[in-house]
Design a binder for these strands. Sequence first.
DNA 1: AAACGGGGTCGAATCGATTCGATCGAATCG
DNA 2: CGATTCGATCGAATCGATTCGACCCCGTTT
Lengths: 356, 356
Amino acid sequence: MSDVANTRPTLAAVARRAGVSASTASLVFSGAGPVADATRARVLEAAAELDYAGPDPTARSLRRGRTGVIGLVTEDSLGDAFRDPVNLALLDGLGEELSDDAYGLLVLPWTGEPGGVDLGDVPMDAAILLGCSVDLARSVEILQRRRIPIVAIEAPPLPGVVPIDLDNAEATARGAGLLRELGHERVALVTLPLDLARERGPLTPEREAAATAYTAIERIRGARSMFPDAVGVSAGGSTVAEGHAAGLALLDVPAADRPTAVIAQSDLLAAGVIRAAEELGIDVPGELSVLGFDGIRLDGITPHVLTTLVQPSVEKGRLAGRAVRAALADGAAPGSAVTAELRRGETAAAPRAAGR
Amino acid sequence: MSDVANTRPTLAAVARRAGVSASTASLVFSGAGPVADATRARVLEAAAELDYAGPDPTARSLRRGRTGVIGLVTEDSLGDAFRDPVNLALLDGLGEELSDDAYGLLVLPWTGEPGGVDLGDVPMDAAILLGCSVDLARSVEILQRRRIPIVAIEAPPLPGVVPIDLDNAEATARGAGLLRELGHERVALVTLPLDLARERGPLTPEREAAATAYTAIERIRGARSMFPDAVGVSAGGSTVAEGHAAGLALLDVPAADRPTAVIAQSDLLAAGVIRAAEELGIDVPGELSVLGFDGIRLDGITPHVLTTLVQPSVEKGRLAGRAVRAALADGAAPGSAVTAELRRGETAAAPRAAGR
DNA sequence: AAACGGGGTCGAATCGATTCGATCGAATCG
DNA sequence: CGATTCGATCGAATCGATTCGACCCCGTTT
């Protein structure tokens, strides 16, 4: 009652007060091991008297070698990472799997270099890399030295990293194939940001070569497998506004130079392109076909059912969650791959169907 | 090279190999204290040889008493918490403040009881409560026992908890006042979920009395200060779809029974109500005025500029971040309050303006 | 009645670092 | 040239718990 007043009580203090050893007190709180009812009651009473809040999580983590925390590394700012509906769906799946084991999700925006979080300094049991580019390799190394299991969602293959893959290139190729079948020849691309700089602007061979964002690169590759010479514009993010700007850049030109189809790398970008077309008086799909990617719900954002590649976002989250759990339990880690399916919506048709 | 092969190397091992004491090796990595260049080099070399990844964050946390983690407690599922644009904006503000000190944000969905995360078991330096209801009081107690500073955003006042408040009741009253001035008398409410159950349905005195969601309660109170007898419907979430459903419930009735204005507790709900009105052939604002709350961007979700109460969401995040930093630095914690401002948009007008 | 078994408790080692105070040699000062 | 100071390093204590093996006592089994 004298020196314990100010400082936080410890398990040892509780044990002393209850007249038992620290080991026994520990057993009371952890639930493991047999403890006589009378003893348990005495310890709990002592704890209540001292206002003890239970074992310190940090100390427990050290001893047990587990923190109960899983890091989610993103390359976006905190807010932007979750502004993408695909990531939200992924979070749903992830939450489903992780909540069972009461894991907490530690969101770590990885900005590149300056003063940001050093992945090596963060206490966590495993890491999930979300939409991370090639630059991350160094951080991956640190985590691996620390023997932390890593699950990467749509990342370039790295040794020791469990991949959750999406057939970005192949799926895009399938979508592009549809456009080709319909008879399109002048096709333009609207891509996701190419790198951490997120600079928007026309796609040049140099910029493409310097790109680091894996998903964007793969989808470009898929599109180019059908339309090798397609022109394009890179957006500064996956938003309707960015798609709108990109759309204007591509479509606000003499009709002869205008593409007859746009391959957008996300549904939000596609919606923006469609909006731009509407503003310019270009009929979709009559004069312009638009292909999206993701298959998110576009409630009221566009009146059309988008022609797009529907990816199983929630499932990706579940798979990532399961992979983490498996890695933590067995040490073994099942990688996996999912597939996006082409949905023929209402925004793709044969070129010049309007009969000009 | 023999027994060190399998297990993770420790600072002690590195020190031994470099021929220095553990204390000196620690100084090398922490940067504190003077170390001779030659010694430093030797230690780093030893570390490299052993593939040492730097001091273990868990051990460091225990010794230092700091984890570098801040808990963000929400009552939604992982995904749903971030589906609300207001929360995203808040995250932006929070990230701004927290990234400087390289704090990680640990997202903790608090589901109530079953097997979810126990807030007492999570290693964190401070906690931010986001949109949390009265039920949380017990968890708050645990955190306080653990001497963890708590910042609560829009929560009922609790002793020892730093509040970041919004004038929900007063702002709503101002908005309702506008409707009254315009001449409305039959006004209906569309509220946010009343509790963790999120049951949708008509507002009854019993349900209102049993409500636990602070923000919803306050906004109802504000509305009732102008329209004591307003009928209402509670939604199951802050989404356009929920607003749409609520709108249909309120508006799909004989015109004589229909309210002339709806006070929605969020912009998304308001957008849903407007959509429902459109479907029913009810003109907004001619036959129905709609008031929102939040002031988010509703890009293309509705053609109108919403009449709404614009709250400074990003600022709330910043304030919360600053409060956390202050609490961690000084122990002192500045609470604060922000105000929502009425924006007269295009969705409120005098009743029956269409001249029936 | 001796041996056995097991529930209940305790001591001591351990998890991996940080940090305070002490030590020691060398450089600086008067 | 002796005294003081400063830089570099080390030992030992500490952070707060968990856990393994040992131990004791008492009820069973044969």
